[in-house]
Design a protein around this nucleic acid. Structure first.
Lengths: 330, 330
DNA sequence: TTGTAAGCGTTATCAC
DNA sequence: GTGATAACGCTTACAA
């Protein structure tokens, strides 16, 4: 691990300062000199020492991505969008999961120039501390005072899904929600709001017997559907707040000998890869794009400094109708 | 960003050297002194500067994880295993995808102390360069000269799957393989070997009309199954090299009005989350564990240096029989 | 057990 | 346009 900027400087017959300037594409360097330095550097197989550069400049050239879980579809898909943008820009991506460890400012300070938080619950006290760190921070999929976020309009997405079921002629519509605790500013809360608004506008019945919690997991969705089916007059249609919960719901239906779309209509939110395969109707979010947008914003912040004030972005969704919400036989 | 080791040293009435030693838990520090230093550091909210530490020590305290794609189930799941172990150890995880950019030693040198490569094809020339970097490197899911790997016994997994179908009474068995190019040392090659061996031992027919390539994707699996069904005498059972390809195959079957497990038996490899839901029989790998094992090995290397020579590990698989490979009706 | 001080490889501020 | 040179904040022999 030898060759330093001094070696390059010596070989090129210039000072280390010039090498630094030349290689970083800074102005005020003679193009001839610059090219010579480049050639020498290439020839010597010179690789800049990130540690030294970081120490001297105060910038790390890296961004932290925080997520509740690495392998869940939504998170992994957003992550892939983030990764592609950052890598193209030559920015390092530090991955941290809140499932594994409590996310502390100490593990961020001095290691990264910015933070991207995927679906970190706004009520998480850790999140506020991260924001207070003063680094450029953007949230993806959630909303929280103090940082811009990139997300869909959750209320609207739920309205779209619910309205679709109503348009199909359903009157008794169940809800499979995420979490039981109704913390505002969460997708769960907003989607519930959209659902309730739409139902009430249509003067359709709502209530605890028409709602069950699925924790945003497949298994949770399955149990939630079981619960809904166990009621005296089960719904003829169900809106699940996520595709994965809808998958679980489908499974529960099948076990009861009911066919999704035939006996009970089903709509989810996400646009999960498997939805197409399972014929699940869904309000699709541009998940990869969510990540790309947030990462692009981050690059701007790192380059220009906070030029424009933090501004949240709402990304549009798309209703995709498939077999699971076919009009019921009359 | 203000407070340095000097501030702590001054406040604690010791030298910076002692602070450094005390905080890192090095021996030869009076416990009283150590505790005092700790208290002061905590009180001052001191956070060590990673850049400075790295520059001075030559160690980065981080590991790169390289993967073909971030959001594909297998990769994301392995990644979650890796992440949990590294984070517990306080080691930073740098994520890089080969899909986004060509993975160059320059983006690794000086940035990480080790490399974990998930499913990077052994024939990839980039991989060899990474190995030549001299950093502790481990492969997950593939095998390549020069670095230890953590993986299942692909031949054996294929044997298990194939034998299972034969045991169910099938005689005409198709293969949905990954890639068409038969580069040895790839899972695709090894699984094909296991399949062919088993078929030949059972004196069952094999041949091009009983094999199609699915590129390890759902869509690819679907097309592959279409191709198999199009032959004059389609197989009564199919072994797909991955669960995702099997999902695609199921879809193709459904479209043809055929029921998986009823009309055509199906077995995959992976133990994908959705397999259970889709009633797919599979030879399950301990995917998260793959990541955990590799990461644990990495931590050992970083701590002890290369104590024992690089040694590959084969992790056992488990055949899980579900509806997709029920014994055919007679 | 603790302190001193020489690096570690860049960047950035001034002069020139 | 280029060159000295002082940071940057920590680690680590080497002394004490």
């Amino acid at each position: 691990m030898g060759i330093t900027i001094r070696d390059v400087a010596a070989a090129a017959g210039v000072s280390t300062a010039t090498v630094s300037r030349a290689l970083r594409g800074l102005p005020n360097v003679d193009e001839v000199t610059r090219q010579r330095v480049r050639d020498v550097a290439t020839h010597l197989d010179y690789v800049i020492s990130p540690s030294a550069s970081r120490l001297a400049s105060g910038r790390t050239g890296s961004v932290a991505v925080i997520t509740p879980a690495v392998s869940r579809w939504f998170f992994a898909t957003v992550l892939s969008g983030v990764e592609s943008v950052l890598q193209d820009a030559g920015v390092d991506l530090l991955l941290q999961s809140t499932a594994t460890a409590t996310i502390s400012p100490a593990r961020l300070r001095g290691r990264v120039d910015g933070v991207l938080a995927i679906s970190v619950p706004p009520e998480d006290p850790q999140l506020q501390r991260v924001i207070d760190l003063g680094l450029p921070t953007s949230l993806i999929g959630t909303w929280c005072e103090g940082a811009p976020s990139v997300m869909i309009d959750d209320v609207q997405a739920a309205v779209t899904a619910t309205r679709h079921l109503i348009d199909q002629g359903h009157q008794r519509i169940g809800l499979i929600s995420g979490s039981a605790d109704g913390a505002p500013a969460t997708p769960s809360y907003a989607r519930r709001t959209g659902f309730l608004e739409t139902m009430q506008t249509a003067t359709l019945e709502v209530g605890p017997q028409l709602e069950a919690h699925g924790q945003f997991t497949i298994d949770g969705g399955e149990q939630a559907m079981e619960q809904l089916l166990a009621s005296e007059t089960p719904p003829t249609a169900v809106f699940a707040m996520s595709d994965e919960m809808a998958f679980g719901a489908m499974r529960a239906l099948r076990r009861h000998g009911l066919a999704p779309g035939q006996d009970v209509a089903l709509v989810g939110i996400d646009g999960h890869d498997m939805s197409e395969y399972l014929e699940l109707s869904t309000v699709a979010q541009p998940v990869v794009e969510l990540g790309r947008i947030a990462a692009t914003w981050m690059l701007e912040q790192l380059a220009d400094g906070p030029t424009r004030p933090p501004e949240s972005i709402l990304v549009p969704t798309t209703l995709i109708v498939r077999g699971s919400s076919a009009r019921p036989r009359l």
